[in-house]
Design a binder for these strands. Structure first.
Lengths: 210, 210
DNA sequence: TCATTAATGTGAATAATCTCACATTAGCGA
DNA sequence: TCGCTAATGTGAGATTATTCACATTAATGA
């Protein structure tokens, strides 16, 4: 183990390893080699070992990795041994669908606030029991409910303004689903989820590849 | 312009440039320099020029890029000067939200088929007018309606099986929202959209960064 | 106890990607 | 017409990421 800057790609792959390992646990697999895990994750075995080597030695030479242990180690690395509170901003089609989506809960994330500007929506109770608040109350509630990460699912035109408000409210992590590049200070980490970019990439491969 | 392997990262950035340029068009900006565009996209100016250089010379030295022209050039490069037909497989929360989502239409994508296994959903008409079919009819309808790309929004446990069926039906592009790594033959291009991975990455930055 | 085996951990080689720096050139005005 | 300006296009260099290849080592069984 060294002290080195960790590649972003490594962090993303750790999530993938973790999920694959969790599936393996469900199938009662106790131990797995980097080779088998790599095949299942679609990466190179050495890549897995290198990725893990940034953080320590987790395997047993000649044997492999104990699945259960490795899941916990990766959780520890990623900071997932604690709950994280989320706020959804924008409860249109996408926001509403995501907040109901089981995967967030399954991975230890909890929505503790939801915001929209539509007076028709404000005050409504979501299936999770959470009540939608007006965006005007954003800063106050974010602090009050100890929100750590904001998910932006507003129209693109509103995304930057919401991001500014989130930063002012002290948020350091934003998951942005709006198809714009939002600008934030360095203290805030933004990740973008953009399916049209992925679709464009498929279109490119279909039209030029064959 | 050279004949070289185009980095995947370049293709993804082209989508981002295109969208930013389209926004600029709406603001009646005629011409833009790589420097200004770069700032707005959050990349290095030389990166933009390099990316474009893979495909030709699109700028005017001393002036910059004509916004309207460049949008069309990028569309041409990505293969977006024609419509692409999509099929949604899985109409739970996420699938239903995505199929209504305006961005696909805006970028020239059209849903021509939708599938689910739930008998309660089969036969229902979506707001777009599209009728939900049973997955049993997948292969037939995919061919009949000339679907080019399949979007998988089923539970993770079903994703691989659906992918297999899509490949059998002749599909060469899959956008996978299920949180598993699906395996397909080389002829088929898969892109994954996975928000929990992005959230995990934010969690990592929040817990280790500060 | 000790050789054997299998799979890790890792330095070195390779490959991919990004950035710099500047030569080049289109447009513009005198 | 000609020089000046501004921003492109691009080779070379720097950086980052991936893969190889093998020395290392834990477990196992004779």
């Amino acid at each position: 183990m060294k002290f080195a800057k960790i590649p972003m790609a490594t962090i993303n792959r750790l999530s993938i390893y973790m999920r694959t390992l969790q599936d393996l646990l469900d199938e009662d697999v106790d131990v797995i080699s980097s080779e088998r895990l790599a095949k299942q994750c679609g990466v190179n075995p050495a890549q897995i070992r290198k990725d893990l080597a940034y953080f320590g030695e987790f395997g047993v030479r000649g044997v492999g990795y104990r699945v259960n242990d490795l899941v916990n180690q990766i959780k520890e690395i990623l900071g997932l041994q604690r709950p994280w509170n989320l706020a959804m901003i924008g409860l249109g089609n996408l926001g509403s669908a995501l907040i109901r989506h089981a995967n967030f809960v399954k991975h230890g994330y909890v929505f503790t606030a939801a915001f929209d500007v539509d007076p028709q929506k404000v005050g409504k109770r979501l299936p999770t029991g959470l009540i939608i608040n007006h965006v005007d109350e954003l800063e106050e509630l974010i602090k009050e409910r100890d929100v750590h990460v904001g998910l932006i699912t507003t129209p693109a035109s509103e995304a930057q303004s919401i991001a500014n408000q989130l930063v002012l409210a002290g948020i350091n992590g934003i998951l942005n689903f709006a198809p714009v590049q939002i600008q934030v200070p360095d203290c805030c980490h933004v990740e973008n989820v953009d399916f049209t970019i992925k679709l464009d990439s498929i279109a490119y491969h279909l039209s030029s590849g064959v």
